[in-house]
């Protein structure tokens, strides 16, 4: 009789241990922050001044291993963001001899199922050699290096 009770207690403790370990994994998961799997379907949302077009080109140019789709409903991840361009003013040209534009952009990648933002990046170029193309390629490069599963 006492042997049965002991066995039951052991079983209960084993189950409790398993629950504890599962909980521990759950609490650790947000810190590890999920990444985009290779070949995942990504939708690039329209961004001001057509920056999304530059971003799509940059994703292809930097060989980011994701599939860019045109339909949000079939996508697993979404890239949203903001971009701003300021052309070099006359004062900048005359005083600094600089014809390059000032570029700013910030993008974020969100998981469409969980609604969580899994990666974000912002870039600022005071004198961008190739305008929006430079900032879009910076975004794509960091996307490839930091957000995609190795």
């Amino acid at each position: 009789m006492s042997h049965n009770r002991g066995l039951t207690m052991v079983l209960v403790l084993v189950v409790l241990g398993a629950v504890c370990m599962t909980h521990a994994e759950d609490t650790k998961s947000p810190a590890q922050s999920s990444k985009i799997p290779k070949g995942a379907k990504v939708f690039v949302a329209p961004i001001a001044d057509g920056f999304d077009t530059y971003l799509k080109d940059a994703i292809a140019a930097k060989k980011v291993p994701v599939e860019v789709v045109g339909n949000r409903e079939v996508a697993e991840f979404e890239i949203t963001g903001i971009s701003e361009t300021q052309k070099a003013s006359t004062a900048k040209k005359v005083l600094f001899g600089n014809w390059h534009s000032r570029e700013e952009a910030s993008i974020q990648v969100s998981n469409l199922k969980s609604s969580e933002v899994i990666w974000s990046y912002s870039v600022h170029k005071e004198a961008s050699g190739h305008g929006k193309k430079s900032t879009a390629e910076a975004c794509a490069k960091h996307l490839k290096d930091e957000a995609i599963e190795k």
Binding site: A48, G81, I82, S106, I107, V117, S120, S122
Partner: peptide, 12 residues
């Protein structure tokens, strides 16, 4: 001006 994007990037 889309400043929320810069905050999210800053958080990361």
């Amino acid at each position: 001006g889309g400043f929320e994007n810069y905050i999210i990037a800053g958080l990361r």
